[in-house]
Structure formats: C-alpha cells, structure tokens
Amino acid sequence: MKFKIMVCIKQVPSSTEIKIDPVTNTLMREGAENIINPFDVYAIEEGVRIRERLADIPELETETVAVTMGPPQSEKILREAISLGADKAVLLSDRSFAGSDTLATSRVLSAAAKKISDVKIIICGKQSMDGDTGQVGPEVAQLLGFPFIGYVSEVRSLDNKKILLKQLKEKKYDIIEAQLPVVISVLKEINNPRIPGLKNMMKAKNASIETWGIKELMIDASKVGLDGSATRVVKIFKHEINSNTKMISSDLKAQIDEIYKEIFTYDKN
C-alpha cells in the first residue's frame, strides 16, 4: 500500500522589512533573497518524521513529497526540502499561474495532490510570512474533500488509517482524531527541525525535479492565475494591530445579529 505525505512549501523573501510598491500595491521583492517560508520548515520536518514513524508498518510504501508553486527559481527551496529529508520534490510552474490568489493557488495544489496520487496527509505551515493569510491549507482541503485541522502542535499517534492530533485553540488545546486522508497546518512548536545531513545535501544537489504546468495538471487556464482568482489586491497598507476580544453570549440568533453588526460597523469604529 502506498502512503504519500505531501508538504506544501512557499518561496518567500527572506527579509521581514519588505517594502510595498506605492503604485502597484504589490510587494517589492527585488534584492531580497528567497528562502523557504519559515513556518514551512516545520511542515517539512513533520512530513519527514511521519514517514519515519510509519517505517515499521509492513508493506507500506511511504514517501514524503515537497511541492511548491512558483517561478522556476523556486527549485532552490525544493532542493533545500530534499536536503531536509524529503524524498522527492515537484515544482508547479506555469506562466498562467502568475497572479494567483489563495483560491487559484489551492486549485493548483489540489490538482498536484491528485496527480501525485495516494496522498494521505497534506502538511502546510500555519501561514506564509509574506501573505500571512493561512488560507491555502483549508482551501486545498475543501477542494479535495479532505478534513482540515489547523494549528497542529503535536502528532500524537498515527497509522495508515487515522491520525491523532493536538490542535491549538485560542486558549486551550483540543485532541482530535481524524480519518485519513487529511490536510493539516502545523505550528512552530510541533518540532525542532533537523540540520540537513551531508548525504541529503548531496542527494538534493543531484535530484531531478519535475515541473508540472496546466498541461500536466490538466487544469483550465481560466481557473488559475489572475483570471482564476476570486480576490484582487486593491490596497496594501501598514496595519496597526489593535486586538480587542469581545465575548458575546446570548441565544444563537442574537449572537449572529451581534457579530453581523460588529463586522459591518468595524470600519466606522
């Protein structure tokens, strides 16, 4: 039986001091070195650990596959994923992917999961350092019809059918059991990523990395890229964080009304 673990990683600019182009409202990436999104390093490590934990199950062929969608130079972070222990890596790259929002990106990633086949666990970092949305994981799960469990801080146990996870909620942890396949997003506290070994670094250097575009993934060009995106970036601005928690407790209808009011009067406050 085949059991594949797909790890979704993203190339991000290394600096946290990225400037915003005031004309186009997009991130100015020029000059910044590209790295693996730091949260995704924990996803890779967990993907490798899960494979190692399954090694004792007889006749289970396990493989950890790192996947990224991005321009051809994203190959660099895929090689780094192999040096960190991934068995294989696939680059999802096509001109028509350019400008994809999280939904369009999720369509590409879910098509990749289908093409990889036998994917039992998809692991994402909790969010990207540049976009910060944390939406891709849940959207991939939705498109594939898999359950999604976010903010996982521990994989308590797993076998080839189910997984037991510890999930961080706002002020508590939940212990959740899920049937596979599943999509999870992981927190930094889940593990302590290893330092790449020399063998894996050599393997990474020589690995052949496949590139899949719309043809290989059999997706409609209108469903990806800017055309396939449900959102547009209208404006980017520096946000002052002002966190206020308001507890609402009354009957369900009143709660909904209250939340509705809060959301639609937010700008005025």
């Binding site: 290893r194 330092i195 790449p196 070994g197 020399l198 063998k199």
Partner: peptide
C-alpha cells in the same frame, strides 16, 4: 546525535560500511 544525523561520523568511514 545531531552530528550523527548530519552524517559527520560517516566522513571517516568508506561507503562500503555506510560511510561517505
């Protein structure tokens, strides 16, 4: 252990015995 995981003990040893 970390040094071991990083294959640095393998440097001394021929490939026949799992070295580098």
């Amino acid at each position: 252990s970390e040094i071991g995981r990083s294959d640095l003990f393998r440097l001394f040893i021929p490939e026949k015995w799992d070295g580098m």
